[in-house]
Design a protein around this nucleic acid. Structure first.
Lengths: 350, 350
DNA sequence: CTGTTAGCGCGTTCAT
DNA sequence: ATGAACGCGCTAACAG
């Protein structure tokens, strides 16, 4: 008795070979009929192959194709935290554009750990992705950063393309976001709205993006002869809870005459607003709040959050096009960043 | 003159073969030293191979490994919309657990389109992922749904594992979320808080999750002899803007004595709150609002949003373990869902 | 322990 | 237009 009557254990996927045999054609013909670029196969045979394929539930083995072709249809995306709206919006843009190009995207989270980031780049490189997009980096130079650069350089030397998002501390294609100018513009807008006394909640000192944003902000204030009391700048985690804690710290240190607090990103600003409220104060009235990014939630908190808008999804799309070398005209221009004044920073009569 | 002096065009990645040659060992030894399971290779040689590998910037070709091994290290994840906090939190959980297992996850967005979903499953199947997690489905039966089931069945027949999240309308492993019971519990809680007159904002009729939630809610009300006026139920897109628009519709139809509106998810509820505010009303005071999911933002809107909590990240982790057949004890229990009463539904004295 | 060799599933010349 | 044969990079017997 053969084993045909057994309980069906996992039967291996049918191969192109199976399809070819079923259709009574050669492997090559089957290949051409199913995946070959320009059709040059008899319509009759083509149909036979197609029916055989569907009859056998054939699904082309992408790994095998990648090996044979020497190139995959994958893009690798690295973010710090998938659940963070900043990154999830960028990711949505990347995935959207990738789908548009017939590419599949592999995503990983660095959890803001430089070592993890390096490890991930290493494994991801094994996928031989067409492009690798790093949205999670942005630290000051260091040994890990050198290793990262080396790994990426090797990746590019082998024909891969890498694109950074945000800061260009490493010599690779980058969708630059002008955090500094954005921070400056925000400062000007706030000064214009009558604010004079500031506080800030930012991230660890070695982080590029928060640093640039705050630097710009400070520069913007300086242009008006204003400054932030160093005692009113608190460093904390760049997360919602970090923002909350940072604001608590500020409150415990006595807000004094602080009129507005600038959180280096919206997620933190939102946390800060909750801290303000939990302290029995009213954001926007007792103390104004401004953020950065313009995540969707910014419109829905109360009062709506003043921020600096970055078109995050578009940034994701642009990163992919840039890496692919398919940049369209507008991709060459700097990413448009604009201050969005909302009610969390009401005009302040003086 | 040889071409050694040319401008370095993309030089193909070095192969295991190159490493072996450089180290002066055989292919097999190199393979064992670099990727072989349990080490059984002379330490000296091992070192030679390792140095050769790093000298050549060797990176194992995962596709080739997958072909040779007959199995990949990938998991495929399908969500409706990556930027939606509901999905991005689940994704964070899946990616976290996958990383834990040394798996890479490729992610795709169905954009809530059944046909796209089917197409994506088809391509994703080509990756020969170990598991496929579908968090985006949940429609009533239909031709597309049959095709989807067929595709997934074939995938499983070939040794793949699939896991659904949320509803089990198809016969596959599922991390069931008890939307109905959750809706019911919410209704009870609201009735307990003194509410008697309800409105609801939900999604298209064929969508399972919104349907179950509302059904449960209605059942919960019925248990207390209450009901929702059909005229006070509006169907709209299950997005923030959908919630906003739905609420506007409700307001245009005259809120009348409506005391609380139940939006079938938090994202919609948040949009609804903004619509209420934009209409010059105060959410929580003029009309209460309740949502579902407990996304992070729920705590940060004003007033904080009453909702039904689902541990989304944990759901993502559980889905992966379930698919992998590594379910731990607690994975067998139903996902804990609980009502979280916040100030968007203040107790209503009667 | 190490090296040889035969595949894995597929694309692609090169003949026919 | 079609088929036979080789190669892609790697793993896994199978010998030594």
């Amino acid at each position: 008795m053969t084993e045909s009557g057994r309980t069906a254990g996992p039967r291996p996927p049918s191969t192109l070979h199976d399809v070819a045999r079923e259709a009574g054609v050669s492997l090559a013909t089957a290949s051409r009929a199913l995946n070959g670029s320009t059709r040059k196969v008899n319509e009759l045979l083509r149909q036979r192959v197609l029916t055989a394929a569907s009859k056998l539930d054939y699904s082309p083995n992408l790994s095998a194709q990648a090996v044979a072709r020497g190139t995959s249809m994958t893009v690798a995306l690295l973010v710090a935290d998938i659940a963070d709206p900043y990154y999830s919006q960028i990711a949505a843009g990347v995935v959207g554009e990738a789908d548009h190009e017939g590419l599949l995207v592999t995503m990983a989270a660095t959890e803001r750990d430089a070592v993890r980031e390096l490890d991930l780049v290493r494994s991801l490189r094994g996928q031989r992705p067409r492009v690798m997009i790093l949205a999670a980096s942005g630290r000051d130079a260091g040994p890990t950063s050198d290793a990262l650069a080396g790994e990426l350089r090797a990746f590019e030397a082998n024909g891969g393309r890498v694109a950074f998002i945000s800061t260009d501390e490493l010599p690779f294609r980058t969708v630059r976001l002008d955090h500094t100018t954005g921070g400056e513009a925000l400062a000007h807008a706030l000064v214009g709205a009558g604010y004079r006394r500031f506080a800030a909640i930012t991230g660890a000192a070695h982080l590029r993006t928060p640093g640039d944003r705050l630097t710009g902000f400070v520069a913007g204030l300086a242009a008006s002869g204003l400054a932030i009391d160093p005692d009113r700048i608190v460093r904390t985690g760049i997360t919602r809870d970090g923002g909350y804690d940072g604001m608590r710290t500020l409150i415990e240190r006595e807000l004094g005459d602080t009129e507005v607090v600038f959180a280096v990103n919206d997620v933190m600003a939102v946390g800060a607003m909750s801290a303000i409220r939990d302290a029995g104060l009213v954001p926007g009235r007792d103390v104004a709040v401004a953020g950065f990014d313009d995540i969707p939630t910014a419109r829905d908190v109360t009062p709506p959050l003043t921020t600096v808008r970055i078109p995050l999804e578009e940034v994701g799309r642009r990163a992919l096009r840039l890496a692919l070398g398919e940049a369209i005209e507008t991709d060459e221009l700097p990413v448009p960043i604009e201050v969005v004044l909302r009610e969390s920073t009401p005009v302040r009569p003086r």
